[in-house]
């Protein structure tokens, strides 16, 4: 039930979903050929320009950048350990650009449109025994699970705070795993009872 879509009616919102997927896919692949250079960091401006073109409020961009900040810090540390600074900068530029572009895609695309497009794109796989609708549904479930798991983490941390216990920073991991498995079991039941299995 993750809903990142932010309606503004921009041309990016109105663009066909398949075209957005193609641009995202081709653009991300093309980043492989980005030469190692500090100038590579400028490529991050491309998705940022996309946010402007999508007429998304600065608040939304700020939220998305904040979500990314931990990953960027983690990447910086690991890359600087294993790579030269210039290579590290290029890797960070590539990954940040891809993730920001993917976030922009979800901001400008309704999940329902994404599912319909995935279903259409998966149709050629039908003769091989694949069920396009189930592939599309799997995408929807994957996106919904992210929101659910974030909710479980919040729930477990709140429960720990409510009980006044000071536990290790990672103490939420096991309860969240248990909740996630139980939820997965319930979702499996729900798919059956909704005739979607």
């Amino acid at each position: 039930m993750l809903s990142l879509y932010y309606p503004t009616g921009s041309f990016l919102h109105r663009m066909p979903t398949w075209l957005k997927l193609v641009v995202l896919g081709v653009g991300s692949t093309a980043l492989i050929w980005l030469p190692d250079s500090y100038w590579a960091l400028l490529i991050i401006l491309a998705p940022l320009l996309g946010y402007v073109l999508a007429r998304l409020p600065w608040r939304v961009l700020g939220t998305d950048l904040f979500r990314l900040s931990w990953l960027i810090v983690f990447l910086m540390i690991t890359q600087l350990i294993f790579n030269e600074p210039v290579q590290a900068a290029t890797v960070i530029a590539r990954l940040t650009t891809i993730i920001l572009a993917a976030q922009l895609f979800t901001r400008a695309t309704k999940i329902q449109h994404l599912i319909n497009t995935v279903e259409q794109l998966a149709k050629p796989l039908k003769p091989l025994g694949a069920n396009p609708y189930k592939i599309a549904l799997a995408v929807a479930l994957m996106l919904s699970s992210i929101g659910q798991i974030v909710g479980f983490i919040r729930q477990v941390r709140d429960a720990q705070r409510a009980r006044g216990v000071r536990l290790a920073a990672w103490s939420w991991v096991v309860p969240v795993l248990v909740l996630s498995l139980k939820h997965a079991d319930d979702v499996a039941d729900a798919l059956v009872v909704r005739g979607l299995d």
């Binding site: 039930m1 009872v193 979607l196």
Partner: peptide, 21 residues
């Protein structure tokens, strides 16, 4: 399609991002 069920954990039964969807 002939038998429907509302499971006790309603949150798990909701799959799409918005109510209308």
């Amino acid at each position: 399609g002939r038998v429907g069920m509302i499971i006790a954990n309603a949150a798990a039964q909701v799959i799409m991002p918005t109510v209308a969807e």
